[in-house]
């Protein structure tokens, strides 16, 4: 039986995590706008708060006040559920992410597997959004997304497995502990795994150069073309939370997680995570987008064989 104290504890943790997600998503949106602006020799948001830091708050308020437009002929249930199914897995992923030595909601002993499982749920939400919108552009976007995310999951999981093999555990804290003093990225096979991971993870969260599900130059906005107001904001929050999560996982699996000298663990963790986020933003604002068939070809012909090869080499190294 749950005691009252347990329930309060769960609530406190839940509020902290949700608060962190909201703040971090808003911060990332502002930051992305700033990074893109400076790359393009612009200022970006400057009006709301110092250098526009509160711009995302203003945007959120605007989106909350907006009318909820439901397209005629939409599949109502699917249409309403889709944004939640996109957001919920990314919130759930926070359970196993270690922010510091003791700063983790629950150190599951199947942490990495749990993350892999959650990353597949997101695609259902996106596909539902595409299907429920009763819009041809959205439908194509949803179809593309399903194909893309399923293909990129394989190299993603394979590269995560390599790390688990090294640490001989699926628990995130044990993976971090195994990297004490010597980060995974410093092993050549792990560096390769990191490259495969970061490419597939970019594809998982639909960012340039793999943003074909929302490809605005051909599909207008892909699966979220018809969404407005708060439901659109949910997709947005989901997208940026996912961005944070993939960077956090990369920092945990390959860059030693919260470990580092002098500064407290959580600070190190955030520095590493935001460093990876910055690289992803930098890539986004530089490259063109791949085409859907090239994207699939890249996943199946390049990334998957490379991951299997890497897996075999790592296994051999461990058994040697």
């Amino acid at each position: 039986m749950l005691s009252i104290l347990d329930i309060i504890w769960v609530l406190v943790i839940g509020i902290i995590v949700l608060g962190f997600i909201a703040v971090s998503a808003m911060f990332l949106i502002w930051w992305e706008r700033k990074v893109s602006a400076h790359i393009q020799s612009r200022y970006g948001p400057m009006r709301v708060g110092w250098h526009g830091v509160l711009q995302s708050v203003a945007d959120a308020v605007k989106l909350l006040l907006k009318e909820n437009i439901v397209p005629a002929g939409a599949d109502k249930l699917v249409w309403w559920l889709a944004p939640f199914i996109v957001v919920v897995p990314s919130v759930m992923a926070f359970v196993v992410i270690p922010f510091g030595k003791n700063l983790i909601v629950k150190d599951l002993n199947v942490g990495a597997l749990y993350l892999m499982a959650l990353s597949s749920v997101c695609v259902i939400g996106i596909f539902m959004a595409g299907w429920g919108s009763n819009n041809k552009y959205s439908l194509i976007g949803g179809m593309r997304s399903a194909a893309q995310i399923i293909s990129y999951e394989i190299p993603l999981i394979l590269s995560m497995i390599i790390v688990s093999m090294q640490a001989s555990s699926l628990s995130m804290q044990k993976i971090v502990a195994a990297q004490a003093g010597y980060w995974n990225i410093l092993h050549p096979n792990m560096a390769l795994a990191f490259i495969v991971y970061i490419i597939s993870a970019t594809a998982e969260v639909n960012r340039v150069p793999f943003d074909i599900p929302e490809a605005e130059s051909e599909l207008v906005a892909g699966f979220h073309t018809e969404y407005s107001g708060m439901k659109f904001a949910m997709f947005f929050i989901g997208e940026y939370t996912n961005l944070f999560i993939i960077s956090a996982i990369a920092a945990t699996l390959f860059f030693g997680g919260w470990q580092g000298p002098v500064l407290p663990g959580a600070v190190w963790f955030l520095i590493k995570t935001y460093g990876i986020v910055f690289v992803l933003m930098w890539v986004r604002w530089t490259f063109p987008r791949l085409r859907v068939d090239q994207l699939m070809g890249f996943a199946w012909k390049v990334l998957t064989p490379v991951s299997f090869f890497n897996l075999a080499v790592t296994g051999w190294l461990l058994l040697k």
Binding site: V35, H38, S41, R42, W282
Partner: peptide, 14 residues
């Protein structure tokens, strides 16, 4: 990437 990071550190023009 080198081109974009070059302009990232240049002053803005707008």
């Amino acid at each position: 990437l080198a081109v974009t990071i070059k302009y990232f550190f240049r002053p803005t023009v707008t």
